[in-house]
Amino acid sequence: MMTSERLRQLITFVTFAALVGYWSTTGYFGYELIAEIAVFAILAMSLDLVAGYTGLVSLGHGALFGFGAYMFGLFTVKLGIAPATGMAAAIVATTICALLVAMVVVRVHGIFFIMITLAIGEMGYEFFFKYRYLGGDDGLVGLPRLDLSGIGVNLSDPSVFALAMIVVTLCVFLVLAYLLRTPYGRVLTGIHENPQRMRALGFPIRAYRISAFALSGAIAGLAGTLTAQHTQFITPQLLHWTTSGEVLVMIILGGLGSLVGPIIGAAIVTLLRHELSSYTDYWGFWLGVFLIIVVVSRKDGIVGWLDYLRQLVAERRRPETAEEA
């Protein structure tokens, strides 16, 4: 019988195989699509770490994402720092920003947590919308890509860039999957399940929540620097709450707390946005219908459905094997 764990590994393998398969057969438009999926997959995994595993549903992750992109723009375009250093600095800056935000927001819970992350995110949006030095509402152009010609990788080639983005997505997935297997990762799951008991056992749950949020911010910042390098043009729209909402839709659709689900969710939402929107103006409507089905079925998204199917199959088989024995 296949275990839940094995099924997840299979889903992960199929997901990445599909991405690479698509990459090997597609053209320019497909490369752009893959890069976009990868950016949102990374952002969605970052949100899954806090929302799906730690139980902190943030509506401010779009702002952290946009903050990372703008920091990359600031360091490279405005301050003339090399892209690699600028990228590292932008990620560090976003981590610090997320840490400061976390110290405030972990004091409240439930709907208040959602509202305060939303409010802080909107403050960020307003700031970059008004801040002329970084382009204000016109956005910022001319962002560079990492120069990897030293190791024979030309990131200005869309095909190469798309493949590199798949690789980064895989790396982020592997790092997080590993982290969640460590005691620290298990503690985060415990805090999600029963914070009161975790505190009674002796875990300083606020410190764990802050650290998870900061780590999540680092990954959201990474996604921001990647979208900046992909489109080479950024606007305050990245920080808008609709970005946060869309990423939340991705992880709910794919499967909250499954890590691979958010990647699938990112792929579906991105594909729907591009494909369905050319057939119908109502793509958002269909996405909504899809989302309602997922939420009402209470099966934790696509990954949850697949796991439910696995259980059905396992139950069907069980009586047969019992007879054989």
Binding site: L179, P183, Y184, R186, V187, G190, E193, N194, L201, F203
Partner: peptide
């Protein structure tokens, strides 16, 4: 007041992590 979604082993491991002071171990 348990972790009802987890297994018995996972429940007790939570307390064992405290006992072994490994909560911050992420490596």
């Amino acid at each position: 007041n348990l972790f009802t979604g987890l297994t018995v082993r996972q429940n007790l491991a939570m307390a064992a992590i405290v006992h072994e002071r490994r909560g911050r171990c992420f490596w």
